[in-house]
Design a protein around this nucleic acid. Structure first.
Lengths: 243, 243
DNA sequence: TGTCAATATATTTTCGAAAATCGGTACAAT
DNA sequence: ATTGTACCGATTTTCGAAAATATATTGACA
């Protein structure tokens, strides 16, 4: 995979923006595993870009919490742990709940329409690709993200939306980890539908409760996988530099 | 001001970290004004550092929302507006309230002790420096930040703390703007003391209410200054490039 | 054998310059 | 006068190499 600056009429994103985007995807989907070292040289080869845009992208991701930087020791993907997951989900319940409540208060017809559309698209995707079984379906990921985004889109606060998106991305990473660990994904289609119905019915209390349960259940499932993976840990670092 | 890599025994922060730190301060205190362009060359001279660490610092700040990046048009300090302020404060009320509630639930003796100490230090500082009147007192800023941090430190969620700190920094910027605009700062010493007392008394409801009012009042005051400044705007961009 | 200093290697971090892009200005053609 | 087009300087963005720092290895000495 190589990013090259092209000079079409269209506004090409900078190399930095492209690296950022792809790196973010690779981390969230655990193509780059938690705690994995991110050496500039290896990333240079991986994305076919110079050191500067790569480091810049890593800095942004560090501020988002997806990447860790240690003084003079370089970057690594943020580690995944049970404690981190618990904290994340605890916070997410509050943020998603708040955003949903506000969204239900403020949402207009456009919000309803977009929500219906997002759910429809999501309902036509499966979490994993049939063929392989534990391969992540990137389209489902996107539609799932879009659905939750649509639910809370009318909350009326750009700040709250930003916070929500950040927490969501971090949670996605744990879901991806769970899928990769050969854990058969639970079906939450009906949960999504129920949430949508409650939201459209302007039943904030019920919608928030459903959301809380929804997050809680994914949390439990993922935490279980995480514990199993910890018992038989995936090898993250090379045995030794030389043969 | 120049950052140079020194080789003492102590672990010197990287140039990037130093630039980040100083740039953040300069933006929050409005030494770099809202919407001001941040040209790499001028920042290079300002901080005596190369382009790379400066851009990296700017990327981090962009993720934090203190800086804006436009494709191929460079960076600027995030603009300040009434709408942005309102959104910010609305979100802050919720986040600070939540963190305070959890902190009151979980806080132990250490939390109480640190809170008392933080308030004591804060109560010995004035918002502005006597001599000049509308010059920002950086020590007050720090102690004020520390006090609010101490209030919510025991909330038990690293994520919530991070979110809170980010929103707080953005709010600080508006307060600084208000002070610079020759607006005589309101005295909120008693408000801080009341909040502390309510927190120590484990009266979450009252503490959160006080916090909400506290934020609301600063919000009003700052919004008023902002409106006045908008009426007679501070010149942000050069009249013209050439003489 | 074990410890410690000295050296070598790998990696991060930073710089200076080249490449790409933007915004404006001059100038020709209609 | 207006549109469009080819330039020019300013600025951002990117690269490749040098400097600084960490990590691994070697060898001397107890």
């Amino acid at each position: 995979m190589t990013f090259v600056q092209q000079h079409d009429g269209a506004i090409e994103p900078t190399v930095n923006a492209q690296v950022f985007r792809q790196l973010r995807i690779d981390i969230v989907t655990c193509r780059l595993m938690p705690n994995e070292r991110l050496r500039v040289e290896s990333l240079r080869k991986r994305y076919g870009a110079g050191g500067s845009p790569i480091r810049e992208a890593l800095m942004r991701l560090e501020a988002e919490g997806l990447v860790i930087l240690e003084q003079n020791k370089g970057f690594r993907v943020s580690p995944a742990s049970r404690e981190h997951l618990l904290d994340l989900m605890k916070t997410r319940v509050e943020i998603e709940g708040l955003a949903l409540r506000w969204s239900i208060e403020n949402g207009g017809v456009d919000w309803e329409a977009n929500l219906l559309a997002a759910f429809h698209r999501l309902s036509h995707q499966k979490k994993t690709l049939r063929a392989t079984g534990n391969e992540i379906n990137l389209v489902w990921f996107r539609e799932h993200r879009n659905f939750h985004s649509a639910l809370t889109a009318a909350c009326g606060s750009q700040h709250l939306i930003g916070i929500r998106e950040n927490l969501f991305a971090q949670a996605e990473r744990y879901v991806a980890l769970s899928i990769i660990s050969k854990c058969p994904p639970r079906s939450d289609d009906s949960e999504h539908e129920q949430m949508m119905r409650a939201a459209l019915a302007r039943n904030a209390g019920r919608a928030v409760q459903l959301m809380t349960d929804h997050i809680g259940r994914t949390n439990e499932r993922v935490a279980k996988t995480l514990a199993a993976a910890a018992a038989q840990p995936i090898r993250l670092r090379r045995v030794n530099g030389k043969a």
